[in-house]
C-alpha cells in the first residue's frame, strides 16, 4: 500500500514539474511570436549615450555603479547580511579546522600566487570601468587570498594574519564608504548616488582616473565583497 503511495507521490511530483515546464514553454512560444525588437530604447540609450554620460567604457559597470547603483547598494547589503548570519551562527572563539597536510609544492604555490592574486584583484577593481571586472569580481578575487591561506595553513594561521574583526571592520567600512560616496551627490546638490549627473568630472574617457565616482565606488564594493566572502568562508569552515 505504502509502495503505491510512494509511486503516486513521485508521479504527482513529476506531473507538477512537467506542467510547469509546459507553461514556461508556452511563455517562450508566445514571446517568440511577438515582435519585441523595438522595445529596447532604455538599453539603446545606455549604449549610445552611456559612455558620454557616465564616463565609463564598460557599460555593465556604468549600469551597476551609476544608473542602477541603488541595486548595488542592495546586493552589498545582501552579502553583509549573509556574512552577519554566518558569523552569528559560528561564535568567534572556536577556530579549529580538520587539518590536512599538503606537500611542500602546495605551500610554495600558495605563497607564490598570493601576490599575483592581490595584483589581479586590485587590477580588476581599479580597471572595472574600463575592462571586464569591477568591484564584485575583484573583491571575490581578493577574498581568495585568505581562503587560500586558510586551506593551506589552517584557520589559526589565516586568522592570525587577517583577524576576523579586521575583516568585519573592512566590510563595514566598505559599506559605509559606499553610502558616503553616494551622499557626495547630495552634498553637491544633486541626488543620492548621483555620479554622471553630479558632474564629478568624467575626465577623459578611457583613462584610469575618469568616470567620476565609479572607480571609488568600485573600490568600496571590492573591499566589502572581498571581506564579506572571506568572512563567510571562514565561518563555514570553522563550523564544528
Amino acid at each position: 500500500m505504502s509502495k503505491i503511495n510512494e509511486r503516486l507521490k513521485k508521479l504527482h511530483t513529476i506531473a507538477l514539474v512537467v506542467a510547469l515546464a509546459v507553461f514556461l514553454l508556452v511563455v517562450v512560444y508566445e514571446i517568440h511570436n511577438l515582435d519585441n525588437n523595438s522595445k529596447r530604447y532604455l538599453s539603446e540609450h545606455y549604449i549610445s549615450e552611456g559612455v558620454r554620460e557616465t564616463g565609463a567604457i564598460n557599460l555593465v559597470t556604468s549600469v551597476l555603479y551609476d544608473y542602477r547603483a541603488f541595486d548595488t547598494l542592495g546586493e552589498a547589503t545582501v552579502i553583509l547580511t549573509a556574512a552577519a548570519i554566518l558569523s552569528l551562527l559560528v561564535p568567534v572563539s572556536k577556530a579549529t579546522m580538520l587539518g590536512t597536510k599538503f606537500s611542500i609544492i602546495v605551500y610554495q604555490t600558495t605563497k607564490f600566487s598570493i601576490p599575483f592574486l592581490a595584483v589581479l584583484g586590485v587590477h580588476l577593481i581599479f580597471f572595472g570601468h574600463l575592462s571586464p571586472g569591477g568591484g564584485f569580481v575583484g573583491g571575490v578575487v581578493l577574498s581568495i587570498i585568505p581562503i587560500l591561506l586558510t586551506i593551506t595553513y589552517g584557520v589559526e594561521f589565516s586568522e592570525s594574519k587577517l583577524k576576523p574583526a579586521k575583516k568585519k571592520l573592512v566590510e563595514d567600512i566598505g559599506a559605509i564608504g559606499f553610502i558616503l560616496l553616494g551622499l557626495l551627490g547630495v552634498v553637491t546638490g544633486s541626488n543620492f548616488l548621483a555620479n554622471g549627473q553630479a558632474n564629478f568630472g568624467p575626465g577623459n574617457t578611457g583613462e584610469l582616473i575618469s568616470a567620476g565616482l565609479i572607480p571609488y565606488l568600485n573600490v568600496m564594493i571590492g573591499i566589502k565583497v572581498g571581506a564579506g566572502l572571506a568572512i563567510i568562508f571562514n565561518s563555514l569552515i570553522k563550523e564544528k
Binding site: H12, L16, A19, L20, F23
Partner: peptide
C-alpha cells in the same frame, strides 16, 4: 514544497 508547487500549477491553470 509539493503543496506549494501544486498551488502554482492550479493558479496557472485558473488564470489561463
Amino acid at each position: 514544497l509539493v503543496w506549494a508547487t501544486s498551488t502554482l500549477i492550479v493558479l496557472l491553470l485558473l488564470l489561463m
